[in-house]
């Protein structure tokens, strides 16, 4: 199980890109913290999510 924004999801084995697209995120608008560290966008394709990972996905909305 992978913890995403506090919720446990069975997405072990997905790449970061696969998860974000399947969940409907616009990759250009997100920042991802994996186990407390920023995950560089260049690494999304090759980063495979594994049991016990903890993710925070921030998806920015417009306005300021």
């Amino acid at each position: 199980m992978v913890k995403i924004n506090g919720e446990q999801l069975g997405i072990d084995g997905y790449s970061m890109t696969e998860y974000l697209l399947s969940a409907g995120y616009d990759i250009k608008r997100v920042a991802v913290e994996l186990n407390g560290n920023i995950l560089p966008k260049a690494d999304y394709d090759e980063t495979l999510l594994k049991d016990g990972d903890s993710l925070e996905v921030v998806s920015f909305v417009g306005g300021g």
């Binding site: 250009k28 608008r29 920023i38 920015f60 417009g62």
Partner: peptide, 15 residues
């Protein structure tokens, strides 16, 4: 105000 600009800056600074 632009969401892509927000994401770009945050990613840049943290990386």
């Amino acid at each position: 105000d632009n969401p892509e600009a927000k994401a770009n800056l945050v990613n840049f600074v943290l990386e």
